[in-house]
Each structure stands twice: as C-alpha cells, then as structure tokens.
Design a protein around this nucleic acid. Structure first.
Length: 583
RNA sequence: GCCUUCGUAGCUCAGUGGAUAGAGCGACCGCCUCCUAAGCGGUAGGUCAGCAGUUCGAUUCUGCUCGAGGGCACCA
C-alpha cells in the first residue's frame, strides 16, 4: 500500500518536465528537476524554476525556455494548467480531483498514512542517559522528549528503531551519591560529620538514608572519629570527597557495595517511572559497568595500544586522538590505573556496532559537543565507520520563574525536576512545548507562563481541532449513521471551496513532511506542521458547516474532517501527545 | 585564543537558493438564536545584525566584522 500520495504526484510532475526537457534541451537531460510548493495560492500547487536554471547555458532568456518547456509538456489528466510567471517560473495547477484524492488515500491508509516504505535500516537512538544520581530535571526532559519523538518519527519513516538508555553505573559520580547517602545515614545515628559541599545535597538523599536505616538498622554505622581518621586533611574539595569515599569502602567492605547497589537501584527505578509517565520508554537499559565486567573496556584499550594509537605520559595512558582530528590527545587510563569515562565510551560504541545497527544516533547535551571529535576519532582508530554515528546536540533549557532565571545545580539539589514540571503543566503540554524549539537551540522555559496560561499552549489548539472533529462525528452518528466506511464513497469533487482546497493541500504535504523531518532528525518540524494543519482546519470549520442538509456535500465534508483527524492522530502519536475526543 | 549554536515583527520563535519573508503572544477593529469562542476574520507592525563574495536570483551558501549563549578535565 502506498500512502505517499504527494511524492508520487510530485514524481508525476517531475516526469512531465523530464519529458519536456528531452525535447527542449536533450543535452541537459540529467539536470536536477526541483519542484517547490509556492507560498502563494496564485502560483499554483507546484512550481518549477527549471527554465531559470537552464537559461544561461541555453543562452536564451528564461521565459522563452519556459515557453518551450510548457509547449513540450505531455498531456496529463492531473494537471489543470501549467503557466509561465515571473522571471520564468512554470506554475502547475492541479485538477481538483488530483487535489482532493488525498482524502480518499488517507481514509483507506488510516494510521499508515504518511509512513515511508520500510528502509530495512536498523537505527539505534541513545538518549537521556543521565547519571542515576538524582531526579531528572527539565534539561533531561528535553532530551527525553526529543529522543522519544525522534525515535517514533524514524520508526514511522520506515526504520527499525531501538531506543537505549546508557546507565553510568560505574563511575565516581555513583560513589559520590553512595557516600552522600551514607553520611546522611550516619547522621541519623548521631554520627555527624561535616557534609562535603560537593556531595549530593538533595532531599532524596535523606530519603534513601532513611530507607537504608529501615532495612539495615545500624549495620553500616561507624564512629565519626573512625571515619575522619581515614581521611587525610586537605583543602582540595575533590580530594576530601574522595577521602570520604575511600573511608566508606574501607570501613564498610561489602556494606559499601550494598549501599551503592541500593542507591543505584532507587535512582534507576525512579528515573524509569518518571520517563514512563512521560510516555518515554526504552528497549534497552545498557549498563556501563557491564563493559568493565566483561572486559570490553580493557580489550578496546589494548586494541588501541596494539595498533600504536596510544602512549604513556605522566603515568597515564593517552590515546593519540590528534591523529584523527581531535585538538588534543586524551587520557584513556589514569595514572591510578582507572580507566576514564572516555575509555568505556569507546567500548560502548563498538559494542553498539557489534550489535548490528546500521546507524547510531547519540542525543547529547550541548555541553558534550567537544566530545564528538574524540569519540569519532577512536572509532576510526578501531576500524569502525564514524560516518555511521550521528551525534545530535540538545541545547540547554533555562527555567524562568518570576521573570528570573532559576538556579540549576544537580549537586546542590536546587533545581526543578521533570516530575514537578510535568505535574505543573501536564504531560501533553510538556511534550509539545519541548518540540516547539529546534533541538540545537537554547530553550527558555517560562514556568509562570506554562502554568498560569497553559490554555495558550499550542498543544491545546491542535488537540481542540481533533476534539471538534470527534464532536461533529458524534452528532452525525446521532442521525443514525455511524459507518465511517460510507465516507469512502463520498464525492470529493464537492470539496471546492478555497479553505477546503487549502486543507487538502496541507494534508497532502504530510508524507513528505515526515520524510524530511526524519531525514533531518527534526521532530519539531512535525509540531509546527500540526499547528498549521489545525489552523487550516479551524479556519475551514468556521467558514463552512460540515453537517449540512445536502447529503453529498455533507459526506464529502465529513470525509475531509475524518481525514484531518487521521493526520492529527498520526502526527500527535509520534510526538507522544494524546488526542482527546472532547475538551 | 580555539570550537560551536545563534542574531528574522514590540516579545517568543518558525522558514527558504526563487516571485509580495510567516505563526503565536501583545496592540487595535470585528464574529456565537448556527456542528465546542480552548475558535474565526481583519488592521498595524520588517534594512531577515552589518559588509563583501558566489549566483540568472542570497534572508538562505562562503568569508570577514559586530553582538549574544555554550564548550574547551587524568568529571561524567
């Protein structure tokens, strides 16, 4: 089943021009023939600048070239007229049946309308991947909304998509969370130690300390003096924090592993629930630690060393990333023998390729942009194809409350969580709001506006169009007719009003919109399209009554309404936004 | 200093190698005895930051200048 009506229509016109071109200028038979949708209705349904492109090499003025091309165009029952305008544009106006045919196509294709044919390509999208050291904040929410919408968009565009969350369960940050929790736990038992300012301060840390207290009573209690005795005095905050971590490992032994495992499990569980409520789910939660446990990290570093891509300096092992376009070499194994995050990330990406994905898409925070060169460099060095990795950067979200930028610090615990945001403005508004900005543009999220004036959020505008159509259909059904299938027989030639034509054109754009948005990793384009579609619908709805007495017209308009509803559903589904039947 | 994102209406932002650059909000004027007014119609509002280049054509591509944000760890 081909639901992609418009590409074939576009192809049809391209073929017509190609045929004409072979008559007029056969030596240019292979020139690219581009068709665009004119902004102005008076310029027809499609326009070509082919004559302008050819004019110079033909040494003829563009209008004359256009005249010859038009004269050589084969007859088509889809084209009403081909006119020459402006400097030499050829404007095609379609027959009304060619314009409205999309309605029938949508009704028969249903939820498949707009889908591309299967590409056979396996794509993996890795996103969010936040350290499980605290609640997700609104920045993570943007990555989640973007990654989820992009994944759905790619799937709709015919790719086989796998969604993955990379769990950083092996690093120092997790140790810091564990020690933060332990210190709060010790305080419950009266062993009060100075809480490091660079440890995790959030309330959830107290909550986890209490959980451990309930489960383990005083099993992990150590005397404050004993803890302090393990720590060498230093003014360096990071060194002191590492001292606390080492003290915990030394004094607790197995108990440290238990606390570490508990806080990890708690945070991951919370994170997963948060995302599920947000309509964001993953096929795979991939553990960083598993790369160490299976020896993959050591193996990849050995592989780099074996090919002379590394060298020792200052006790550390460096990857020669400058040989692959990076601006400086990078450490893969520190002087203390511990691998860097970079080392495990190389292993991670090789692991992804080994799983058979044709294309990897990493959705990263914009602060990781300097990281791209070294990862691609490492992939090149290990024989992988860096061209199969696309990194999409999502810019920061700045929260504004009372007109002032809200402080955002994970460590200090002073930030608005994704969960708070969702509860304040609703999941639908959140998902849609995040899509109203290109991913690579900074997003200012005005909390007061989102909360107090959520009625002005465009998501309601789009959903309202859907609800209105449902309402019309419900009233039509109350006349004793409820079989939407009967609309397949509607005489669509009756859809000849200006706003009906405009709405049909908008609907017809959907397949190529999907195709282009998927190609560009740009789900925001879909959000803007849906706004435009809703606007075209509301405009038509206000101008023309659907449930008129004239039965043929009534059926034709119902068919158009149902087709519109279908495209709204297909589009909103991709964005993870619900489609209410009433509002 | 280097890398990167950006500069479009009063504000927030889309968009494009093409013909008269769009939307929402804000302002102003209108529209419900009629399928949901969470809607619609209209008016006003622009040197697409600036300069040069490529092009038949540049707001779009290239370079430079000015201005804004972000990044440049043996953190993740």
């Amino acid at each position: 089943m081909s639901s992609a009506t418009q590409p074939t229509l576009r192809q049809h016109l391209t073929d017509l021009l190609r045929t004409a071109l072979q008559t007029v200028a056969p030596e240019h038979w292979d020139v690219d023939i581009l068709l665009e949708r004119p902004k102005q209705a008076s310029h027809g349904d499609f326009a070509s600048s082919l004559a302008l492109q050819l004019a110079r090499s033909l040494k003829t003025n563009p209008r004359q070239v256009a005249e010859r091309l038009v004269a050589a165009l084969p007859v088509s029952d889809l084209v009403a007229k081909a006119e020459i305008a402006g400097a030499g544009f050829i404007n095609f106006t379609l027959n009304s049946n060619a314009r409205t045919a999309v309605v029938a196509t949508i009704l028969s294709a249903g939820t498949a309308f707009g889908r591309d044919v299967a590409s056979g390509q396996r794509v993996q999208v890795e996103f969010v991947s936040a350290n499980p050291t605290g609640p997700l904040h609104v920045g993570h929410g943007r990555g989640a909304a973007y990654g989820a919408s992009l994944s759905s968009l790619l799937a709709f565009a015919g790719h086989e998509v796998s969604r993955e969350y990379y769990v950083n369960d092996a690093g120092r940050q997790m140790d810091i969370l564990a020690v933060s929790t332990w210190l709060r736990y010790l305080a419950i038992h009266g062993q009060v130690l100075p809480f490091p300012p660079n440890a995790y301060q959030g309330d959830y840390v107290f909550a986890m300390a209490e959980q451990i207290n309930v489960a383990a009573a005083d099993r992990y209690v150590r005397q404050a003096d004993a803890v302090l005795g393990q720590i060498h005095p230093t003014d360096d905050l990071d060194e002191r924090l590492d001292g606390f971590i080492l003290a915990g490992k030394t004094l607790l032994g197995e108990g440290w592993q238990a606390i570490h495992a508990h806080v990890l499990h708690e945070q991951l569980t919370d994170c997963r629930a948060d995302l599920e409520e947000f309509g964001v789910s993953f096929d795979e939660w991939f553990s960083e630690r598993s790369l160490y446990d299976s020896g993959q990290v050591a193996a990849v570093v050995d592989q780099l060393a074996a090919h002379n891509h590394t060298y020792e300096k200052d006790g550390a092992l460096w990857f020669r990333s400058t040989a692959f376009g990076d601006e400086k070499d990078r450490v893969v194994r520190r002087d203390n023998g511990i691998y860097t995050y970079f080392a495990s990330d190389i292993a991670y990406h090789l692991n992804k390729f080994a799983r058979g994905f044709d294309k990897l898409i990493d959705v990263w925070g914009a602060d990781h942009h300097g990281y791209i060169a070294r990862v691609k460099g490492a992939l090149t060095a290990t024989g992988a194809d860096p061209g199969r990795l696309d990194v999409t950067l999502v810019q920061f979200v700045s929260l504004f409350r009372n007109g002032e930028k809200a402080a955002m610090s994970t460590r200090s615990g002073e930030y608005v969580t994704l969960r708070q945001l969702r509860h304040e403005v609703g999941n639908d508004a959140c998902r849609f709001f995040y899509m109203l900005r290109k991913s690579d543009q900074a997003l200012d999220f005005d909390l007061d506006l989102a909360k107090s004036q959520s009625n002005e959020n465009p998501v309601y505008y789009v959903q309202y169009a859907h609800a209105r159509i449902c309402s019309v259909l419900a009233q039509w059904a109350s006349d004793g007719v409820s079989d939407i299938a009967v609309l397949q027989q509607a005489d669509l030639s009756l859809l000849d009003h200006e706003r009906e034509v405009a709405l049909c054109q908008r609907l017809a754009e959907f397949p190529e919109l999907i195709h282009n948005a998927a190609r560009d990793y740009a789900p925001h384009a879909l959000a803007f399209y849906l706004k435009d579609l809703a606007a075209d619908f509301h405009s038509w709805y206000n101008a023309e009554r659907v449930l008129v007495d004239d039965k043929p017209i009534r059926l034709a308009r119902l068919a158009l309404a149902v087709a519109t509803r279908q495209v709204l559903q297909n589009g909103l589904s991709i964005l993870g936004v619900s489609q209410p039947e009433s509002m």
